[in-house]
Design a protein around this nucleic acid. Sequence first.
DNA 1: GTCTATATTGCGATAGAC
DNA 2: GTCTATCGCAATATAGAC
Lengths: 215, 215
Amino acid sequence: MAAGKKTTATEKPGKSRQETRREEIIKAAAPVFFEHGFAGTSIDDIIAKVGGSKRTIYSEFGSKEGLFAAIVTDNARHALAALAPEAMAGRNLDATLLEFARELNRVQMSPTVLALYRLVVAEGVRFPELAKLFYDSGPGLASARLSQVLKEFLERGDIALDDPDGAADEFVGMIRDNRHLKTVLGLMSRPSAEDTEQRAQTAVRIFLDGVRPRR
Amino acid sequence: MAAGKKTTATEKPGKSRQETRREEIIKAAAPVFFEHGFAGTSIDDIIAKVGGSKRTIYSEFGSKEGLFAAIVTDNARHALAALAPEAMAGRNLDATLLEFARELNRVQMSPTVLALYRLVVAEGVRFPELAKLFYDSGPGLASARLSQVLKEFLERGDIALDDPDGAADEFVGMIRDNRHLKTVLGLMSRPSAEDTEQRAQTAVRIFLDGVRPRR
DNA sequence: GTCTATATTGCGATAGAC
DNA sequence: GTCTATCGCAATATAGAC
């Protein structure tokens, strides 16, 4: 009766059957959580989507919370991979920040991450571990990486500031601006690529040089 | 048998019995929605808090949604009224921005606005009118006001930028930074007054002059 | 399929405003 | 005293849980 899709395994040579199954479950469960919220989703809802046995879910993820945590970390890992410091090595300040702004924007405006954001903001107070996991593997990690980058440029004398951690937080905030909020609230569809590029450039420009004219 | 509280009416001379009752209900119901979310709150929960009859709620607000909407609009109106005053006239650029940063920070870090933020982000997709109302009377209004201010300074030549609206959004984003998010997620209690002041100053400094050393 | 929870409504009784 | 808002309680409807 279940879905007839036989994607069972042995198709991706690099992955064990367990890994494949794990990914199938995560991929199928995520939209269910997104639609009904954490509390509003039952393991049975997920079984109804992905098929198989509850037993598999519990042995792989331990609990409903464990499954959700896996969804968060999995998405964060995929999404933020491009923000790795290595990806920015050997570039100058402007190019590094611009690339960071683009990547962060791309990540946080993706439908999946937007849905995660809504979900975690909604349930964060009730499930502090989930909130912490989301923050640490998403916005917090982004900020920490940027801070590290800023410190390197600081040592070289390319920039001057008192509080690199604070500045990193504020740059991340610039990227997560009112357009992000409007999109989160469903008031706006995703901005165009040109608009996004334009705003990334503006953010970098402001962060580096400010709006006060130099003379 | 009923609760002995006789707050009946005739205490606020300017308000009709109906108005008084309406406000009592909103005041009592708001924390319930804030704590349990829209779906997690039942009319009976609210009656248990405020007393009286369900019928009153339905004749006044029409439905649970109507009550929810009234709570959001009422709280938004009260909490965000502080963004209205023009304490910014006739000052120079630095002082104006600093005052704006302080004020916006104070508003958006208040417990009520934080609770509203969580609630509206959670339910925004389901209640687009509420999302729009919250945005327009909060972050959107702040951004619009700032944009107007920026345009004035732009005309005077005090600043140089291409896109005042975009820059305003980004400044608002700097104020709603990762500390705001951590607080929304319950990962952090409200930052101290000194920390807040420090960060407001940093944001203004970065926005005006950037982090690149002037030479 | 039964059972529970909960949104919504109906209506007679009561209490406060004028 | 009349009028209206509110109360109290019960009934209906329905969706989801078990």
